[in-house]
Nucleic acid binder design. Sequence first.
DNA 1: CTAGGGTTAG
Length: 804
Amino acid sequence: MLSTTTLHSLPPPPSSSKKPLLPPLPNPHLFSHPSSLLLELCSNPTELRRLLPAVIKHGLFFEHVLQTKLVSLFSRFGALREASLVFSDVADRSDELHHSLLKGHCHHSPLPLSLSFFLSMRRADVRTSVHNFTYLLKACADASDLPRGREIHSLLVSSGFSSNVFAMTAVVNMYAKCRRIEDARKMFDRMPVRDLVAWNAVVSGYAQNGLAADALAMVGRMQEDGIRPDSITLVSALPACADARRLEVAKSVHAFAVRAGVDGLVNVSTALVDCYCKCGAVGTARKVFDRLRGKNAVSWNSMIDGYARSGDAEEAMRLFDRMSGAGVEATEVTVLALLSACAELGDLEEGRKVHRLLLSIGLESNVSVMNALITMYSKCKRPDLAAEVFDSLQSKTVVTWNAMISGFSQNGRADEALKSFYEMRRRNVNPDSFTFVSVIPAIADISVVRRAKWIHGYAVRSCFDRNIFVATALVDLYAKCGGVGLARKLFDSLDERHVTTWNAMIDGYGTHGYAETAIELFEEMKRSPAEPNDVTFLCVLSACAHSGLVEEGKRQFESMRKDYGIEPVMDHYGTMVDLLGRAGLLDKAWDFIERMPIEPGISVYGAMLGACRIHKNVKLGEEAARRLFELEPEEGGYHVALANIYANASMWDDVARVRKLMEATGLQKTPGCSFFELGNKVHTFYSGSTNHPHSKQIYARLDTLLDEIRAIGYVPDTEPIHDVESDVKEQLLAAHSEKLAIAFALINTRPGATIQIKKNLRVCRDCHAATKFISRATGREIIVRDMQRFHHFKDGLCSCGDYW
DNA sequence: CTAGGGTTAG
């Protein structure tokens, strides 16, 4: 009372303001009426707070109906602090008052608070209503809190509500939301009566737990039970159709919706749009979308995302413009869809536009969006920009770290991927299965066995080693680190194998030159539940190419389309050209290129150029190089390869011409370098470099080593070098990075130990010959992984049979 | 206090 008087004596507000600061005190009549009309008219907690003094002034605060109304209204607005304050001021609290506050807590307070209030109610002997349970169960479902959900469930049973259809539907829903669909189903089966809503709960439960087939089966069962699906049934079932890519089912749901007259509802149509998109029928989705009146943000997002996923990023962007034009505001889902479109296309320009857009609508602290932004920049081959975003984020989740690690991995920045991984652990962020899948390829890229074993052990300790994605990455890792036998052991130990698992193992054998084993495994795969895909055939073909199995390769290429209906793409053609070309069938390879049904790309001409270099064919080499210069003008490697072809043919003028061209256009040859892991450190050797701290000893060991192998027949292969004296040629060859790495490895490992080297380019002919002699002279097994494959040198021979 | 089921993302 005092406070309102004070407020009335305040100076009047500025004349521009038409509204008085507070309305005059209302007629007490409006409060005393049981409906408490004036309170009901409030639309926010502030208005309600302003009325409080009036309620008190008119002495109505202790009116029971009013108290309950206040608690319920403060609760509705989420102002639980005020609701609780009013509640605690009430002397004689009715059951209704308790129920009202419990409802408020269930909708707005953290679950533990709601539950403890409920328990206090029971201690105060408040009569428990079945509604209390439905509210509490909903709160457990929303929080995905299984332990508390179970607790409520058991209280519900002991309170005698276990046959109540409302309560039991809420129980079913709670278990489904807590990802315990089997328990949900058990409870559903026990219900004595199941109405439409109960059926809908179990349908959506299956759908949301990824059990699409069960969800759809339940829609059938409810109809057999005489319950007709409603729009909510359809909206729950459609995501299941989408999940299972069941286009035919989607169409029948659509027809049902039309017959039931619910196809005009925005949520039904939107679910149809999404479902058609996911089933690959983007055109049909668009028709539904265009007919839809009153599109909301979800409708637009579904359609935009549909285009983004089908690879039509341009249409996704166009549609987004129309969405803005229609006055519908972009949401985080819009931005996520647009970012994934840009990532898919590698379209940096559009990606930057979306970046600006998301800043303009204030999504810069939305973690999901920022993670997608990191992925977008990574996919656009800009890990630097991704890292900029990453560094600017104050709050990072494990997904953020994964996105960054994966971004580095996929852009060949293995060192940074590993560094991020270490940093993540330093900050006590727990890795998940995605983290392992992101970091393992980086380790495979560096090819260091010690770290391979370390990450494997780490995965075992974190219990992710049986995760099929992690396990597949580990199989690939061991194969790439030279341990194809270890890879097979791991492969055999798995009880689940995806297509990719088989592919990794087949490819492992292929790159190690064990084509026959690769084919055998492929045959075994055909007998397994796994279906070979386009990548499987790529691995099989490349295994054939590495081992010179020309006829087998041709046969597999035919079988791919004939028996499996897989249309070859560019890389398959490239591998076929590689297969024919390496085998010296250059004319056949060229013929193959000319008969290709699609325009030949980089991988095709690249394979051709490589084959021409091996088999010294100037004419076709020039032709392939010419096409490559057009297709990828900024790549220097093709010029180097062409120069090598000319050098092999002693066409020195042409060598000089290509070199001049390279200088003029600023193209550079990638410097050759080799890696050797010693202890925890990876040592890098560049050709001719003396930068290594132990350079002197390395060159000294190399000198004696060359003497040793010359004594058993090594002759330096100086053919490709021409413009220097012959002793200088030999020096240049001797300082090739691979030889430096081997010399260093010989010094630093115990006699008889296997040496493993990784090289960034292909092994050169002279190094290949020299390494064979070194393996014999020193009695060492030497494993070299180059860009293309593995070479196992032992007793003067190489596993590639000099075919590479 | 008058209940329980529903559409887009990674």
